[in-house]
Write a protein that binds this DNA or RNA. Structure first.
Length: 216
DNA sequence: AGCACGATTAACT
DNA sequence: GTTAATCGTGCTC
């Protein structure tokens, strides 16, 4: 059976907690009869106006408005003139924090993902934040989408728990002009040996352990 | 109204 | 390892 849609209480916690616990969960795009899905294997946390690596550092703008809304919504933004990136909003309403989804291991609908990615196959399919969005067809239309709303075409459900021994942390990617300590603070989380590359993917098949902090 | 730049990717040396 | 592609956004003038 497929897991239940994670509810708002999962996202209504500190962004670092959510970024860690999203590892191993399943990101699903679509509806009950048509699913594209994969295991999340890399995330990054962005925490409020005080985090100079976070888009919220400049205050609320039209672009980052979603991040200031309630937890459990998507914050999707456009960058480098061609790429869309997906974040999941965390923490209480009006507190601007979100988790950037950087990589996943495809599990369902891989053929459609390949088509959306221009025929590319293998690790390059979903091993980057913009690749993941392209593979799942995520763009401006999904900005502000509530992942916790019944019927919404994007959600998180239980996957396989990732033990601490398999979690690698490091500095966030691409913050070249961000001052320290924000540039180097270890708020990037990934599953050991995965992303980049996605080789040795989390085993497919039924989940054998409950997700961390299962929602209810 | 103009401009510098970006939570990236893919192609190339 | 280096760099072009490409344009919305937010800041400066």
């Amino acid at each position: 059976m497929n897991g239940a849609r994670f509810n708002r209480s999962f996202f209504d916690r500190p962004v670092l907690t959510v970024a860690r616990e999203l590892l191993g969960t399943r990101l699903v795009r679509g509806e009950s009869g048509h699913r594209l899905a994969g295991r999340i294997v890399e995330t990054e946390a962005y925490d409020g106006t005080g985090d100079l690596g976070c888009h919220a550092r400049a205050g609320r703008t039209a672009r980052n408005a979603s991040m200031w809304g309630p937890p459990g919504h998507a914050y999707v933004y456009f960058t480098y003139g061609m790429h869309w990136l997906l974040n999941l909003v965390t923490g209480p309403d009006a507190y601007p924090a979100a988790v950037l989804l950087r990589a996943m291991v495809p599990e369902e609908g891989e053929g459609e993902m390949v088509a959306r990615r221009g025929g590319r196959v293998g690790p390059a399919l979903t091993d980057g934040p913009a690749k993941l969005c392209q593979a799942l067809g995520i763009g401006s239309d999904q900005d502000g989408l509530d992942l916790c709303a019944p019927g919404a075409p994007l959600w998180i459900e239980a996957g396989t728990a990732v033990p601490d021994a398999q979690v690698v942390t490091g500095s966030r990617v691409g913050l070249n002009s961000v001052p320290e300590p924000w540039k180097s603070i270890p708020w990037r989380f990934r599953v050991r040996g995965l992303a980049p590359g996605l080789r040795g993917a989390i085993a497919h098949g039924p989940a054998e352990a409950p997700p961390p902090q299962p929602p209810r």
